[in-house]
Design a protein around this nucleic acid. Structure first.
Lengths: 188, 188, 188, 188
DNA sequence: CATGAATGAGTCTTCATTCAT
DNA sequence: CATGAATGAAGACTCATTCAT
């Protein structure tokens, strides 16, 4: 008796991600969303209770994808693991930008949004812990300069993903290039 | 002969900068602004004709401060100049974030905003040109790896300013630290 | 499947016409409009995107009604046609007053308003051409004084509709009376 | 000790008249007025207590000028007097348009505005009475068709001043032309 | 008196969300 | 479930008018 849904949750979230990246949290609105989807604006409320839940779900899904790959990482060889981690991060380099507006999400009104944002934060935490663990290992194995505090190493590494890829180098190569300069330095 | 102004343009722009950094272009609004200022919301319109003019003026002032310092730079020693440039950028490291929303400013309605944004863009251009000039010089003088394209060097250097300073190292020391790692690499 | 509209577009435009005639373009506002309508002010935006579109649509509808009648006119007998045209104009004698503020409509912001006003202008043009055509014919057939330039005849005829009908003579009789005086003169 | 006024009441009212004719009651505002005058906007309040008083004074002065001329009219020859009255009205043909917004003036708040508008109304009344008197005389002297009610004659005559002078015929000639057609009719 | 500053009331418009069919 | 209609809260902006120097 129930009509078939004309689009899936996943399609809705894909679209949301694209639009939030294009317009930011405030620029994204349900009218815009519905214009890119079949059906009426109000139909969206059949999928999510409000705007914040949509964006929260979108963020959760995005960081979830990374978390999954990062969890599966073989950490035996610390330097190799770091290089692979950079691959993973660069593959979804927009994540940083997407999550930038997470603080705007009003979690008070919506339980689901609150849960999703909590997940996002714990995923963030996991990644940070993993990164720290790898760096500690790398430093113990004397791969890294010891005169630099570990958090600085971590921050600098993590910040690599924001380097503008103005020449559109393909991701795998780009990843290797960044890693190399980061390790070996820019000097001749 | 007339009443004393209850706050200066400069105070208004300082506050604007803080709030735009906190909330972004869309999150920033005149109600918010007026709540942090003495007097009524409409009074703000005595200072600037509309929201876009306020933000544009704020951006102009911020990049203007940097431009002034960067223009005065002694470029004889390219590497030393780069280090000093990094000092300058880090001193106003939020600039990048502040200008991120420049594209949202509606310049069609407001002549003043248009002029300010034009200034911002030309300043941007100046800094880019200066940076490229210094890098070319540095590369000619064999200070930089030649297997890496110049734009990548530039992007990477520029991206240094976004490195999170989680330990709150004082700016001059922080600048030296970043520069060192960038040049020499993270490896032992 | 959805809620029933609480008033029709036509009702909205009728009311708009009345209020614009009473108050003029500037005196007319959406608060006023909504106070004469059931429901909230913002509901009006479901019908038209902004104030200018409402007034433009109202003008279009009004002149459209006249245009339709005028187009159907049998122009064989020029003097009879002029008398009938006067009937038509007098039937909607407020039109002139309604359109007086057409130039205030901001067409830059709204495509729909622009289109409507364009229609109004072309209708205006049609009526002017028709009137001129009839007058040329009438003059050739020696019905009109030849010492008076045609545009003066036209202007004078057209201005008849503004004659205040202080005694509230019914329109058909009023039309005949004006036509008679216009043709034969006021003198004994 | 008092500074000299930098403009006279008369200059202010001249300007007001021009601007009200250009923009209408609502389009006219004190910012606009002050931009065409030396000195600050608030200085205008030294001359008149509020916007409505300015416009009311402007209207009073305009109709006063006509009233003066009309009062001095020699009414011995009724038809000649009517022709001269038309001269007078056409000389200030904008008056009608200027007074069109008289109903918008808020007289409740301002005693001066109330008095001025009262004057305007009594002047209006005087002109109507004078016109009626002249028409009665003309009809008794058999100059006018008797099958037409007097108010219709009056209304029609008065409405002559609104005839658009598209060819910009000089006023005296224009007046004679209108009077002639009105009297003798448009027909050959 | 003249003035620049301040203000509050008022209007337009957008948008997330709810409602009734 | 789907939907078009309705709505209220919020924010931008204008302008007549008052205030303080």
């Amino acid at each position: 008796m129930a009509r078939k849904q004309s689009y899936s949750h996943s399609e809705l979230l894909d679209l949301t991600k694209r639009l939030v990246l294009e317009r930011g949290y405030d620029g994204f609105n349900l009218k815009l969303l519905s214009e890119h989807l079949p059906g009426a604006r109000s139909t969206i409320y059949q999928y999510y209770a409000n705007k914040d839940e949509i964006i929260a779900a979108c963020m959760k899904r995005s960081i979830g994808a990374i978390l999954e790959k990062a969890s599966a990482l073989d950490e035996t060889d610390s330097m190799r693991a770091l290089q692979e981690l950079l691959d993973i991060y660069l593959e979804e380099f927009q994540l940083h930008q997407l999550l930038a507006d997470a603080y705007k999400i009003k979690t008070t009104a919506s339980e689901a949004a609150r849960r999703d944002i909590e997940y996002v934060e714990s995923a963030h935490e996991f990644l940070k812990v993993q990164l720290t663990r790898l760096f500690q290992k790398a430093q113990q194995e004397k791969h890294l300069r010891e005169d630099i505090p570990l958090p600085v190493h971590v921050g600098m590494f993590f910040n690599l993903i924001n380097t503008p890829n103005m020449m559109n180098v393909p991701v795998p190569e780009w990843s290797r290039m960044l890693f190399q300069i980061w390790m070996g330095g820019a000097k001749q």
